[in-house]
Amino acid sequence: MSETARSQGLARIEAVAGRGMITLKGDMDSRRFKNVLAKALDLPLPDPLRCAFEGARGIGWMAPDEVLIFVPGAEVPEALAALRDKIGDDHITAVDVSDARAQFRLTGPGAREVLAKLSPVDFAPARFVPGTFRRTRLAQVPVAVWQKDADRFGLVCFRSVGGYVAGLLANAAAPGAEVGYFTAGG
């Protein structure tokens, strides 16, 4: 992957290459769904609008019937095989979507403001807390954004609009573009 978008102004923005992503769809209220996650990948089912990360692996809540699983790119075939083995004949689908999406990492005290400029979501520090995972709109395209810890945010979008998103983020984080809304006690 050639995207090496990198910018440093309000926040450090990096395109993350080589991350594996698997979409798991099914009836999340069923015990089977939780079992598949737990037994195949030892991952918990996150609460709505939440995510959980452990090292390089993680899971985010996408919709009432969908989660997005993050694994290192090289582990995708193995993870997919483990999931499908546990799914068996159940009506749960697991698909490798690594190549369908571009991923970005935003770090630094200004990262929250960069995202808040581009999205209608309430990014107030009391509302968008570590572990929050939210699908929303970034300017004109759909994205999923989450907070990992105090100054670290992650973002995925469709790869086809990856260049657009990289440009948006770089522009919103340009030196001198700070608004200071959150640091001013907002």
């Binding site: 709505p48 609008l49 919709a63 209608p120 979501v121 309430d122 939210r134 929303t136 709109r137």
Partner: peptide
């Protein structure tokens, strides 16, 4: 009501 998010009209 499906995910509980407060969604702006543009979403």
């Amino acid at each position: 009501p499906c995910c509980g998010a407060a969604a702006d009209e543009t979403e």
